[in-house]
Amino acid sequence: MAGKFEAFVDHDSFFRFRLLAPDGTIMAISGPFDSKTALAAGIAAVRECAGTGLVTDLCPAGTVARQPPAAVPASAAATVQDDCDDRRVPASGHTFSLANGPRRQGSRPRWVTAAAR
Rank of each mutant, 00 (worst) to 15 (best):
I29E: 15
A50N: 08
V9T: 08
R103M: 05
G31S: 12
S107T: 11
A74I: 00
A7Y: 03
F33W: 04
R110M: 06
A76W: 01
T79Q: 08
A78I: 01
R110F: 09
R47W: 00
T56Y: 12
F96M: 04
P102W: 01
G62V: 01
S97V: 11
D86N: 12
A28D: 13
V55R: 14
A40L: 04
V72N: 05
T63C: 10
A77G: 07
H11Q: 12
R88N: 08
A74E: 03
G93C: 04
V46G: 05
A78L: 03
A114L: 09
S35N: 09
K36M: 11
G51L: 00
D83P: 01
D10S: 05
A78H: 05
A61T: 12
P68T: 06
A116C: 08
D85H: 10
D85W: 03
A114Y: 11
F8H: 08
A38Q: 13
L20P: 00
Q67D: 15
G51P: 00
L39A: 06
D34W: 06
T79A: 12
Q67Y: 10
I29G: 10
A7P: 00
K36R: 13
A78S: 11
P32W: 00
A91S: 14
Q105R: 12
A2R: 13
V55C: 11
F17K: 03
R16M: 03
S97M: 10
P60W: 02
F8M: 02
F15M: 02
V112I: 11
R104W: 04
R16L: 01
D23Y: 02
R117K: 13
R87D: 07
C84G: 12
F15R: 01
E6V: 13
P102I: 03
L54S: 15
W111H: 15
R88F: 04
G42N: 05
F33E: 04
D82S: 09
F15A: 04
L19I: 07
P73R: 08
Q67L: 14
V64F: 05
F15H: 07
D34Q: 14
A40Q: 09
S35V: 01
F14S: 09
V55Q: 12
D82N: 14
T37W: 06
R47E: 12
A61I: 05
A74T: 02
A61D: 15
L54A: 15
A21N: 09
